[in-house]
Amino acid sequence: MSEIPDNHLILPISKPTKGAGGKTGSWRVFRPVILEDKCIKCMMCWMYCPEAAIEAHSRNEVPKINYDYCKGCLVCKEVCPVSAIKSEREGE
């Protein structure tokens, strides 16, 4: 076991990264797809994504899904207030 660092503030935050299971994007059965013309840029999908796999560069642009790490849970599709996210079967 490695030595535990003596630090008084280690925070329980995580970013998408290659873990024990590799890139989690390969777990997906369904892929969420953002419909750019319907998106109102409310960032609800960004907020709710449990893997922090939805990114954006400003409030003026449609967020982008990081398919390397998106597991395909489709929470984003559920929370989208304007049904601007559809799901597609992987491989189709």
């Binding site: 535990i4 630090n7 280690i10 970013k15 994504c49």
Partner: peptide, 26 residues
């Protein structure tokens, strides 16, 4: 917006212990 992160995710024992020890240090 470009660097989202998740809060309170699962941690395996070796990392979990570090976080909990940090509470003791604090």
């Amino acid at each position: 917006l470009s660097e989202p992160f998740a809060y309170g995710n699962i941690l395996f024992p070796w990392d979990y212990a570090k976080v909990r020890l940090s509470i003791q240090r604090a």
